[in-house]
């Protein structure tokens, strides 16, 4: 573990909000990214990431320094997002939220690339909409955080074989959704990620 990180954890354990703030600063990107991939929009992702850090701070005494702090944090964030998805039935992303995020800001330096980026994002969310919360968490950790199956098992409190079977099922579902989208486009529908100009 990084020396500074160990020091911040030690100080945070003694009640220093400032020290934990440094940890928040260091890990905000991976935690937010995981929440975004799980929940599908920036508003919920921000809220879930903030809440995950608060939970981590509250339960810091339970953290085992032998484990990776990042894995421990992502484990808290994953479980929190899974709970949210189950409670609010957010397995499918609200189209309204995505549409509001899709409108590019006129002041953006390159609105076209921003628009493409957002369309790409919608495509990812459409692909992942059929995944169960736990499968989605496993996929996110595997593909966006490049976690090994052992690390995913540790983060999600699953056995390695359970992770393997969840990833297998998730890939099957993603491929099926892709093929269904392809078939739909063949019968005259435009692909959701393609510009009407093409």
């Amino acid at each position: 573990m990084h020396e500074k990180e160990a020091l911040w954890i030690k100080q945070a354990l003694q009640g220093s909000d400032k020290a934990f703030g440094f940890l928040v600063d260091s890990y905000q990107r991976p935690v937010y990214s995981l929440c975004y991939r799980m929940l599908g929009n920036s508003r919920d992702a921000e809220d879930a990431a903030q809440e995950s850090f608060i939970r981590a701070y509250q339960n810091l005494k339970r953290y085992d320094p032998k484990r990776s702090f990042a894995t421990w944090l992502l484990s808290i964030a994953s479980h929190h997002c899974i709970d949210r998805m189950r409670k609010r039935q957010l397995a499918t992303v609200s189209t309204d939220v995505l549409q509001t995020e899709l409108i590019p800001d006129r002041n953006t330096p390159n609105p076209e690339s921003k628009f493409q980026e957002q369309e790409h994002e919608i495509m990812i969310q459409n692909l992942m909409r059929n995944l169960k919360p736990l499968d989605r968490a496993a996929m996110t950790l595997r593909y966006w955080h490049e976690y090994s199956e052992v690390e995913i098992a540790e983060a999600l409190d699953l056995s390695v074989s359970a992770v393997k079977s969840r990833l297998y099922r998730a890939r099957q579902s993603l491929a099926k959704t892709w093929m269904d989208t392809e078939n739909a486009s063949l019968v005259g529908e435009r692909r959701p990620y393609e510009s009407p100009a093409f």
Partner: peptide
């Protein structure tokens, strides 16, 4: 299909929070 899905995933951008995340966290705390 699996290849295309892999391409979509690997070419996606990393979502980043709005600036001031830590300050907002302190307020929320």
């Amino acid at each position: 299909a699996l290849h295309q899905v892999n391409v979509v995933i690997t070419t996606s951008h990393e979502p980043t929070p709005q600036p001031g995340f830590t300050q907002r966290w302190h307020k929320r705390l």
